[in-house]
Computed example of a mutant assay.
Amino acid sequence: MHEGNLDEDVAQLIRLEKKLQIPEGIYLSLRKQGSDWEFAIKLMVLLEAALGRVISEHLHNEAINSHCESLNINGRSGKVALAQALGIIDEAEKKTFLALADIRNAFAHKLENISGNLQDFASRLESQRLEALLKACLTVPKQMENQVSFLWRNPQPAILRSYMWIGGNNLLVALAFQDQAAERERARRHALELANYSTGGVATALDEWQSNHGLMNHEK
């Protein structure tokens, strides 16, 4: 689970949006714009696209991205299971992904909900079910659950959309940082490959890579 400051998180979110070739700020706009039905659909479209892109970057293979588009979000062979196996997401993030997908499937996949809203949908859920969904949306590590359980106890249906947006934001920021780390690893590997053809050897290639990523030792 990623922990960072707000400015850095927003910068990472913008960077990921650019990589996905979607308008800057589109995720931030989802918090209040559009109907609940549109929100639930767009939220998971963005999350699934981001997850597939990061898996592809992590495996250093662009072809993987197209393959991921055909995978289900859940299941033993789904995108979420693959991402967790690769260490891209942790257990709490997995639960958030699945909770958001569950809500999308239960709410947005029903035609009658096009003109409905998430508050009415939440009010029809059993209290324990709603608590479980809200808890999962917040991406809370297991060791912190008791400390923040007040956030989902005795839940109010009106907060479901806000909690979903928070969960989606947590996931996208975490994926953006994972994507950046994968990019740097790909660049490092490329530098090592160049070393095989460089007269300067491994040291020169690594220096080039470190310089490009601002990692040079300034005490040299």
Rank of each mutant, 00 (worst) to 15 (best):
M1P: 13
G4Y: 05
E8G: 13
E17T: 00
L28M: 13
Q33C: 00
S35Q: 06
I41H: 11
L51N: 01
E57K: 01
H60E: 10
E62M: 13
A63G: 11
I64R: 09
I64E: 07
I64D: 02
L71A: 06
S77Q: 14
G78W: 02
V80A: 06
Q84T: 14
I88H: 04
I88F: 02
I89D: 03
E91C: 00
E93S: 08
L98W: 02
A101I: 01
H109F: 12
K110A: 10
E112G: 08
N117F: 08
L118H: 00
Q119I: 13
F121L: 07
F121G: 03
S123P: 00
S123W: 05
Q128G: 11
R129F: 04
A132K: 12
A136C: 12
Q143F: 13
S149F: 08
L151C: 11
L151G: 02
L151A: 14
L151E: 14
L151M: 15
N154G: 09
P157I: 06
P157T: 05
A158Y: 07
Y163I: 03
V173S: 02
A176M: 03
D179C: 09
Q180C: 07
A181S: 15
E185I: 06
E185R: 15
E185W: 08
R189V: 11
H190T: 11
L194T: 03
N196V: 14
W209K: 03
H213R: 14
G214L: 08
M216Y: 00
K220Y: 00
